[in-house]
């Protein structure tokens, strides 16, 4: 597989650049992307096709969505580890976490997320009295709402929605009043004890803008976390959203219109 000739790869790209990159990401062609991009031309390989052409202040040609496939998540916590490393998230605060759901045959729901799943799940849950009907992991992160409550309530304009749909925090203006933390229906926000400002998952905006996938998507070994462009008809995201899957969002009734979608979401998940 490594022995793929450089010329062959170039030919492959000529045929279909996006399909090629997808194959690389999917592991079909497990070659190094850096082989095809001249050294020094770009700092990072372009995991999201076309992103490195987006040089304006905002992303203009893409509409990003995040899909979590809970039928694939194994609860290993790789995503949590990557996230903590990417942002040096202080102890006891979580930009992302993984919940373990256990539903017994009496419809009792048991949920836990010790240390947000950061240390993985090493023990089975012992306090479930009845036979288990259904059990699964649910990764959680910023829902990147189209109508974000946090932006609505921020008194000083320190948390905002960019024109490309990302909700970000300006840590130079945030006064840390915590109103956004109270307003977020998904509890993804916290006050960072180091910077003493509001903090939350940004879907790794800084990585996405450089053409990289969010850190958690990049490390997920089972491809349970998916990130991509809804305008790109060849992206996996686009295809999933058009198939008759069970796709849902969290707390639909809040009216926040999340851009984070769940594939195979059970009704018990809050």
């Amino acid at each position: 597989m490594d022995e793929l000739k450089l010329s062959e790869i170039r030919e492959e790209i000529q045929k279909d650049r996006r399909a090629f990159i997808k194959n690389v990401l999917g592991g079909t062609i497990a070659g190094s992307l850096l082989m095809v991009i001249p050294a020094g031309a770009m700092e990072f390989p372009e995991q999201i096709p076309g992103m490195q052409d987006e040089t304006g202040i905002f992303i203009t040609r893409k509409k990003f969505a995040f899909i979590v496939d809970i039928t694939r998540c194994i609860g290993c916590g790789s995503c949590c580890v990557a996230d903590k490393n990417e942002y040096k998230v202080p102890e006891g605060n979580y930009r992302t976490w993984v919940e373990r759901y256990i539903i017994d045959d009496h419809d009792n729901v048991f949920v836990d997320a010790p240390n947000g799943g950061l240390d993985g799940y090493t023990e089975p849950r012992e306090d479930v009295p009845n036979p288990v009907r259904d059990t699964f992991f649910v990764p959680k992160l910023c829902n990147m709402c189209e109508k974000p409550s946090c932006v609505q309530v921020c008194p000083v304009g320190a948390t905002f929605q960019t024109e490309d749909g990302f909700v970000l925090v300006d840590d130079k203006r945030c006064v840390a009043c915590s109103y956004c933390v109270q307003a977020c229906p998904y509890s993804v926000r916290f006050i960072n004890p180091v910077t003493k400002t509001a903090d939350k998952c940004t879907w790794c905006y800084h990585r996405v803008r450089k053409g990289l996938l969010p850190a958690c998507v990049n490390v997920c070994p089972t491809h349970a976390r998916k990130f991509g462009d809804l305008n790109d008809k060849k992206s996996e995201i686009y295809k999933i959203m058009r198939l008759p899957h069970i796709i849902s969002v969290l707390k639909h009734g809040m009216g926040n219109k999340p851009s984070l979608h769940y594939l195979g979401l059970r009704r018990e998940v809050v």
């Binding site: 309530v153 921020c154 008194p155 000083v156 203006r173 006064v175 915590s178």
Partner: peptide
């Protein structure tokens, strides 16, 4: 109590400088 609560009380004037019209707190 508000100033004591804020993580960045030195930025409290941001409430006057850039009050967010959609925020219930900004009018304070």
């Amino acid at each position: 109590p508000l100033l004591n609560h804020l993580g960045h009380p030195e930025r409290a004037m941001n409430m006057f400088l850039t009050p967010n019209p959609s925020s219930a707190m900004a009018g304070f």
